[in-house]
Write a protein that binds this DNA or RNA. Structure first.
Length: 836
RNA sequence: GCGGACGUGGCGAAACCGGUAGACGCAGCAGACUUAAAAUCUGCUUUCCCCUGGAAGUGCGGGUUCGAGUCCCGCCGUCCGCACCA
């Protein structure tokens, strides 16, 4: 008699068995087996896990379990990225302490993750909001400080005057604070920076070595770093001894210059504005615009003629007007440009508007006239024209020639610019790592002595008024100066939470009490063998982590350069969205779907929205707990791995999970009704060994959907196969094959079939290569490239034999209808194509 | 605007180096078992036609090739990233 698989019993039972046996505890770094460090991006403890987490962690889990079965020493840890704003928002809204809120979220999510049956070494669990983690981060910060990788500088920030806080760019919506709705101001504050720009070239070059990263991510980082080579040159201001420094990547177009433009924030603009109210108004106008993408896109090129002129560096009698222009950025290059309208679209727009000369200096094909027609700048390659001694050169040769001349004559020098800026890490917030610095009126800025680390956050804080609770805490910031012992103040800024996630993978590999990590132990595990996470971290997190690792290398703390050898970015889990007539979002639990009609539970019509990433705000989230209750962990895991390629989005569907539940039970029936068969069945042997080989390569390539299909094929065949020793072996082996993906079912089946020990600790089965090839193959016979017949032949039948057989086929004779073949192409083992 | 990815049945997809398009799954249809339902099992399921067969077919239009979903050129569409970066 057959039974149904009972996940409610099996899940807990086997999870406990794994825990008791301690099989997921990573071995010591000295373990001689090849190391495999599998890591998924650690979660922010928002409260509940969602299907996106489930998908992410299931993928990593399959790989970790597979690696263990293939003889690797596996490190597969989990932790919590637990500092950050949501905890402070919760504190304001719900009057709970950020620490309490965070820790209870962690407890709830950990419970949910455990239900998934993940092969995680929980003994290495870490949480970035705990002093044993952030204290070590402070030690690293001080190491960087001592090595000159940290500095403090006045910098302008988005300031919300109502909440009295600094806002990140993404928190500024249409120029207003996302929470308060107040108009955001630019404010100058002293802020801490990490010198990521010191590593700009290395971070760029290093991308080349990351051949197991998606090209897309490497390209995004390359663009983000934004290296460009050009010339820094000076334009002397007519009638003064001052000059305007300009950066250009097109020095070859210098003879096409018709104006110089400076940014509204340029010091010269500010100086001129003091005596020119209209210029002052214009500068104000520039500052206001340009906060949103839409505004920038539609922004008109606008300028203000300062009345000043500069000398052309190659001809001092040639004077160019100086404008303040809204499209020139202060924080790129020198904050000033020269305009060559014929060969730059922005400059052309500007020149047409202010009726400035447009001189062609690069030939567009046969077009060499000095006067440039039209409103589309020519930015392509060509020969230099109308440029005196540069004429006839290519663009590249002219660039080199001008740079050489500039350096020789002293009006400029070749330079490389980066879009990348230093990493501002100061946050005027409570729930983050305190920056371990003391400000003394007499001794200046001093690091907190090592013996006083960690600098812990005070517990008794309030969130009932705006501003940083650390700053207004009655006692916390008041300390004695470590140098002169006079009263001094703690730094009240905390570190950007991206700092926390920039080294957690090192702390996972090695977590001594007295230092951030042990070098030898960390190097034994690192770099991470496979890192898995969302594409949304393609730039910031991954770039900061790469920087942090290099910084540690530079100061001699670690010997690795790149933290993540292989990166995989998985797709999102999506779900249809629903809205009621009055525009409120409805959760999938609140709607009924009957065919095309969707109604709420009480029958009111519902508007069907787009399929979108699951998010709380749109209520299209599906909580995994009820799924575990109904189907068990394995059906949920299986669904997450099925159908959609892992890098693509996966649409959650109720019918999909039901299908996986049925399949789980079909496998169970194979295990449950297994009987000892007699005799070999070569076709079953072949199927099994093909599945073994195919699944191994699919799992290694993370194409889990294909591995799933192979399990389906094997199971379909085994259900139909007559009893034989081969079938019995195949079903026993199946338990090992599914163990990475369906670990609970595999254990239950393994035990039910009398297997010794835990299937999770078994070796991945070896495949016999001789069983992967057939003795007979089916080959296609085409006439003029169209399939007309298929033949089943011995696999090594030679060309002549194939040709003869093909030409003898009734169907082919019929198709040819007496015509003589002009040519016959034979690909042994594949096809015969007859050209008639 | 710049950069990138993608486009295959009703749906999710597969197709390795250019060699039998649609494996596998979902949904659907028909049947078996059942008093009935659930569960399970069997079969069918790209479209069209003059249906023991044949034709067309991988967003559209061209090209290379004995042969193109796959390579090349040009469009169209969708999605993503960056965004006045000199």
């Amino acid at each position: 008699m057959t039974t149904r698989f009972n996940p409610f019993k099996a899940d807990g039972l086997w999870q406990k068995a794994w825990d008791d046996a301690g099989i997921f505890t990573a071995p010591a770094a000295s373990d001689p087996r090849p190391k495999s460090y599998v890591l998924e991006m650690f979660p922010y403890p928002s409260g509940r896990i969602h299907m996106g987490h489930v998908r992410n962690y299931t993928m990593g889990d399959v790989l970790a379990r597979y690696k263990a079965m293939t003889g690797h020493a596996v490190l597969h840890p989990m932790g919590w990225d637990s500092f950050g704003m949501p905890a402070e928002n919760a504190a304001m809204e719900k009057k709970v302490h950020p620490g309490d809120w965070t820790r209870s979220n962690i407890a709830a999510m950990k419970k949910q993750l455990k239900r998934l049956g993940l092969a995680i070494d929980w003994s290495r669990e870490l949480s970035t909001c705990e002093p044993d983690y952030y204290g070590q981060e402070q030690a690293l910060f001080l190491d960087f400080y001592k090595s000159g990788l940290v500095y403090r500088k006045e910098s302008s920030v988005n300031w919300d005057p109502v909440d009295m806080t600094v806002l990140a760019n993404e928190q500024v919506i249409d120029g207003r604070g996302w929470r308060s709705g107040a108009l955001v101001e630019k404010k100058k504050l002293n802020q801490w920076f990490l010198k990521i720009t010191d590593f700009a070239d290395e971070l760029l070059d290093g991308l080349k070595s990351l051949d197991q990263w998606p090209d897309k991510v490497r390209l995004m980082q390359e663009n983000w770093i934004g290296k460009s080579k050009g010339l820094n040159l000076s334009f002397n201001l007519v009638g003064t001894h001052d000059a305007i420094d300009v950066f250009t990547t097109r020095p070859d177009t210098l003879f096409g210059a018709s104006f110089v433009a400076i940014a509204a924030d340029h010091p010269l603009a500010a100086a001129l504005a003091e005596n020119a109210p209209r210029l002052k108004d214009f500068i104000e106008d520039c500052r206001r615009g340009g906060t949103t993408a839409a505004e920038i896109e539609t922004a008109e090129k606008k300028g203000f003629n300062t009345g000043l002129s500069v000398e052309h560096p190659l001809d001092s009698s040639w004077h160019l007007p100086v404008y303040v222009a809204n499209f020139v950025l202060m924080d790129y290059g020198t904050g000033a440009v020269f305009g060559c309208p014929a060969h730059d679209q922005r400059d052309l727009d500007f020149a047409r508007k202010y009726r400035l000369p447009v001189r062609r200096v690069v030939a567009d094909g046969d077009l060499t006239d000095l006067e440039f027609e039209g409103d589309t700048a020519y930015t392509g390659p060509g020969q230099i024209v109308n440029s005196h001694w540069l004429n006839g050169m290519s663009v590249d040769a002219a660039k080199a020639a001008i740079i050489a001349r500039a350096e020789q004559d002293g009006f400029g020098e070749g330079q490389t610019q980066y879009r990348l800026r230093d990493w501002g890490v100061s946050r005027q917030r409570y729930w983050g790592t305190p920056i371990p610095i003391i400000h003394c009126d007499f001794c200046g800025v001093l690091p907190v002595p090592r013996s006083q680390l960690p600098v812990t956050l005070p517990e008794d804080v309030t969130f009932d008024q705006p501003g940083n609770p650390l700053d207004r805490h009655p006692t916390w910031k008041h300390v004695a100066c470590p140098n002169c012992k006079e009263p001094a103040r703690r730094e009240t800024d905390t570190l950007d939470t991206f700092a926390d996630s920039s080294w957690y993978f090192i702390r996972f590999a090695s977590q001594p009490d007295d230092k951030p990590f042990d070098r030898e132990e960390a190097e034994a595990w690192l770099p991470v063998g496979q890192y898995i996470g969302g594409i949304e971290h393609a730039i910031l997190h991954l770039l900061y982590a790469r920087f942090w690792t290099r910084a540690l290398q530079r100061i001699g703390k670690i010997g690795i350069t790149e933290p993540f050898a292989a990166l995989f970015t998985q797709g999102m889990v999506t779900h249809e969205t629903y809205k009621s007539q009055d525009g409120a979002w409805l959760s999938p639990e609140d709607v009924k779907i009957a065919g095309d009609a969707v109604t709420s539970l009480d029958g009111a019509p519902v508007i069907r929205g787009r399929i979108e990433k699951m998010s709380k705000s749109k209520k299209n989230v599906v909580d995994p707990d009820p799924m575990f209750d109904q189907y068990g962990a394995d059906a949920v895991r299986w669904f997450m791995l099925s159908d959609s390629p892992p890098e693509r989005d996966l649409e959650w569907s109720e019918s999909g999970i039901e299908g996986t539940w049925r399949f789980v039970n079909r496998i169970w029936r194979l295990f449950d009704t297994l009987e000892d068969g007699q005799g070999a069945d070569r076709s079953v042997d072949q199927l099994l060994h093909r599945a073994i080989a195919g699944m191994a390569s699919d799992i290694e390539a993370l194409t889990f959907n294909k591995a799933v299909a192979k399990v389906h094929e094997l199971v379909n065949a085994l259900e139909k196969a007559p009893a034989s020793a081969s079938r019995t072996t195949a079903i026993r082996t199946l338990a090992r094959l599914i163990s990475p993906m369906l670990p609970h079912l595999a254990e239950e089946g393994w035990a039910c079939m009398g297997g010794a020990g835990l299937v999770a600790t078994q070796a991945w089965p070896e495949h016999d290569p001789s069983l992967l090839v057939d003795d007979e193959v089916t080959i296609a016979v085409q006439v003029n490239g169209k399939l007309r017949d298929t033949l089943t032949v011995a696999k090594d039948l030679d060309k002549a034999g194939l040709e003869a057989l093909a030409l003898a086929s009734d169907k082919i004779i019929h198709t040819l209808d007496g015509a003589a073949p002009k040519k016959v192409i034979v690909v042994p083992g594949r096809l015969v194509n007859i050209v008639a």
